[in-house]
Design a protein around this nucleic acid. Structure first.
Lengths: 138, 138
DNA sequence: TATAAACTCTATAGCTACTATAGAGTCAAG
DNA sequence: CTTGACTCTATAGTAGCTATAGAGTTTATA
């Protein structure tokens, strides 16, 4: 199989596949006489695995770690659980941060309506440093 | 004032201040004979404004736009409101995406406990492409 | 057989908003 | 006159790709 076929079947873009090769997540495949990459179906599985992990926003280094673990079948899998737990914590923190941001933006938005001009804009006033109405105020 | 003083008072790092200058968010200040940047207190206000906007995760191009608007005091401020609304939409979408991700990760996590070995790991199984238990499955 | 279309290759720039670093110059105090 | 603190410019790095240029390869068609 050439790279475009592998791309379609794995869901990874051609550029991404070459990037994963460069980063060592997949090994360099054999080549045709004309220097085109040639893949077997094993590579599709590996790339699909990577794709699944990326859809969960796991980093390439985490994924690399998971791929290496598959060659150590007797390792206790606690390390996998810990990785997912850690990743969940990061996601939870990101959600909390964004919710704070959302709240701040909503408060800010309430300071103004569309009928004013720039020099009376409650939003710009709140964003200015000498304002008594700072961004996080109610 | 030299740059470190301005950095302390505005809350922007020295590198960030130079970066904002390069990107045209603040104008190039005068220099001492020894080529050190010299600022007036006006620049602190401008940089504090930028800092406030950045804490709301507004992009530099959005901030640039807001800074330009301040020179057009008679413009209707609807454009500001729209920008904040647009930004809120993006934040809301990001939150929703992350909540989906959180849910997927939690489901995945439930597939395994720490007492297994890698070859029996329910998480790795779920991540593998030939699995009947795909990542988003209940 | 010629040629055009479709595909692939490598290498590089770009994205965002900075941070970190190297190597050199400036300035104030002791 | 030297030490230390500060500043300067320029460059590389961050994450995970995407997009592009310019060149070569393969396949289909005329």
């Amino acid at each position: 199989m050439k790279i475009s076929e592998v791309s379609k079947r794995s869901g990874c873009s051609i550029q991404a596949i070459r990037y994963y090769e460069k980063e060592g997540l997949v090994s360099a495949p054999s080549r045709t006489e004309g220097n085109f990459r040639l893949y077997s179906s094993e590579e599709i599985e590996r790339l699909s695995f990577i794709k699944n992990c990326r859809s969960l926003d796991l980093s390439l280094s985490e994924i690399k770690h998971l791929l290496e673990l598959q060659y150590l079948p007797n390792t206790p899998c606690e390390v996998v659980n810990v990785m997912i737990d850690d990743h969940l914590s990061i996601v939870e923190k990101r959600i909390a941060d964004l919710q704070k941001l959302q709240s701040d933006l909503r408060k800010l938005r309430r300071r103004c309506n569309s009928t004013r001009s720039i020099d009376q804009c409650g939003i710009l006033e709140a964003l200015s440093p000498d304002s008594n109405h700072s961004v996080s105020d109610g």
